[in-house]
């Protein structure tokens, strides 16, 4: 487990750069991660995806299926990749502070 320091805040992360604890998430985390995820400027659309992922996770304890993310945000998968180049799992979930996706990936 590694610790990174950003704007005076420290975050515990794993090798893939995912937050170890969802509770550690704060807006600075997004600022810290965005460059490594290929994102220059954070738009309202990015925020909409992040907000939904966090709400869904708080309510259900898991990340939503891609289909549900698309349906609720109204963004087609193609557009989600335009927003988050490494995709909804590695990109958006990481920025939203959700746990690392598991299974046969």
């Amino acid at each position: 487990m590694a610790t990174v320091e950003f704007q005076g805040i420290s975050f515990d992360i794993d090798e893939d750069g995912f937050l170890q604890r969802f509770e550690d998430w704060c807006p600075e985390w997004v600022e810290y991660v965005k460059e490594s995820e290929g994102i220059k400027d954070l738009t309202d659309e990015h925020q909409k995806v992040l907000d939904f992922l966090q709400d869904y996770y708080k309510k259900n304890g898991i990340a939503p299926m891609v289909r549900i993310l698309s349906k609720v945000t109204g963004f087609k998968l193609k557009h989600i990749y335009e927003l988050f180049p490494s995709g909804p799992g590695k990109g958006a979930c990481k920025m939203a502070g959700l746990p690392k996706p598991t299974g046969c990936v």
């Binding site: 090798e15 893939d16 995912f18 290929g38 990749y81 180049p85 490494s86 995709g87 909804p88 799992g89 590695k90 990481k94 690392k100 996706p101 598991t102 990936v105």
Partner: peptide
Amino acid sequence: WKHGGIVGVFGYGGGVIGRY
């Protein structure tokens, strides 16, 4: 080997199996 691993290339959601 540790559990899981999420790495990849921009634009794709798969293709690489991360392992540590």
